[in-house]
Design a protein around this nucleic acid. Structure first.
Lengths: 248, 248
DNA sequence: GCAAAAGTGTTACCGGTACACCCATGC
DNA sequence: GCATGGGTGTACCGGTAACACTTTTGC
């Protein structure tokens, strides 16, 4: 039995991160509302990608569905990182106007569960065309206007990501299947806001036997083509000794 | 304006940890139901300490109130660690009977937010008298019957605790204000399920300038009395260099 | 005086850090 | 041939790990 009634006071919001080989980005949806008569712009800001769960929908399922709708992809890395339930989290002036306008029967008090999503930019760009969805560099978020408490949620997600990335091999989710060591290094530098010594970084990676060099090389680059690598979760699960650190 | 209506589909559950200088314990409430006519025992198991939030109550406030009711103490260490929303999480046979019996107007679908609480056993034991609330060693939980998905929640809490304890100085919350280094060592050993070399452990602690020796010593012990120490959060906040590890 | 836990230093090894030059390709 | 990023080895230092005996108290 499938219900399509939403739960009026519980939602799921996904903070979707992507990496364009230079910087870390986050996916945001534009929220725009014009006064019907005057045409005056009442609201123009951004929100995370989320919605209210259905009565017969798991939290994890809801998060997956959001990502599926957004990108067309299944099997995206998704992990819950926190729940947000402040009394006033949807009670900003603009937010009240907005909720009244969309009029979907949401409650005044909404608890949302935040999910972290990591996606491989190279697989997904096409599906975002002609939606009001866009990538924004994470270090520009501070200056932006955001709906509800979404800026707060975003920063909590970023903190969670930075914490996890040091301890679990999840950063690979942000890279294509085949990647170079320089791309991996730039990714960690973008994630953690630091920079690493090239040789030491490579020495460390070479101890991670689940980062496997391929026979392939880059092609068509105007410099020495780089070796391509692959992350193997199977090897990781078998060989990790429990206390591998992903920082240098 | 204070409302005393509960939100029927959102609850908060606290996983309360304590340390008795030998092992790590968790606080559980007995859940018992007898058939009114036959007197037959229908349910006898244990639950975490939690309740449904009120309409005008923050998640954090709700968790604090639970702890306050339970222990009489304010200012207990409390941290959210996950939300649980599986469709069938309150739909076990016993759970259905129980929810019908207590008849409080809860929804069929309940999302609960899990909080980790750390308390100093020496301050709180008195307040638990004559309630059906008791400490249980964490390594006995596996063999116990628990309500709803509370066993699952408990294990997630334990994992979160083990993760955090290596990286933040929260273990001190489980000790009295003044403690000995042996107590601290036993605590970490209980938390992480390992054992440490005494000298190396002390060497490491001596580099943590926020663990401060006092002029006092233990009294009335049948062996050489130990130096007492104190954890100073102020010193910690000032001196931590960002990457101190609490493991050895 | 004995049982019980407190307290204390040194050495060996390994992993982390710092650092500079040659190489392969596209244009 | 030049601009661009790819790729490589070594020496030093600091932290971790292993290890055994003396001290102080209550009884």
């Amino acid at each position: 039995m499938i219900s399509h009634n939403i739960v009026p006071n519980i939602s799921v919001d996904c903070v979707v991160f992507g990496f364009d080989f230079k910087k870390l980005n986050v996916l945001l949806v534009e929220r725009e509302l014009k006064d019907e008569e005057s045409g005056k712009l009442l609201i123009k800001d951004h929100t995370l990608t989320g919605y209210h769960i259905f009565e017969d929908e798991d939290l994890d399922t809801a998060a997956n569905n959001i990502l599926k709708n957004l990108t067309g992809l299944d099997n995206i890395f998704l992990e819950q990182f926190a729940a947000f339930g402040q009394l006033d989290r949807v009670a900003g002036d603009k937010d009240k106007v907005w909720l009244k306008y969309i009029n979907k029967g949401f409650a005044e008090r909404i608890v949302t569960v935040g999910y972290l999503a990591l996606i491989d930019n190279t697989k997904v760009t096409l599906h975002l065309k002609d939606k009001n969805v866009q990538w924004f560099p994470v270090n520009k978020i501070n200056g932006m206007e955001m709906a509800f408490d979404h800026k707060h949620i975003f920063y909590k997600a970023l903190e969670a990501l930075q914490r996890k990335v040091k301890v679990e091999p999840i950063a690979f989710e942000l890279l294509p299947d085949y990647f170079t060591l320089s791309q991996l290094q730039k990714l960690y530098e973008a994630l953690l806001g630091t920079s690493f010594d090239k040789r030491n970084f490579r020495k460390k990676v070479s101890q991670m036997h689940y980062v496997i060099p391929l026979k392939k090389k880059q092609k068509g680059v105007p410099h020495k083509p780089a070796q391509l690598y692959l992350f193997s979760r199977e090897v990781y699960d078998k060989t990790r000794k429990g206390k591998i650190s992903f920082i240098i």
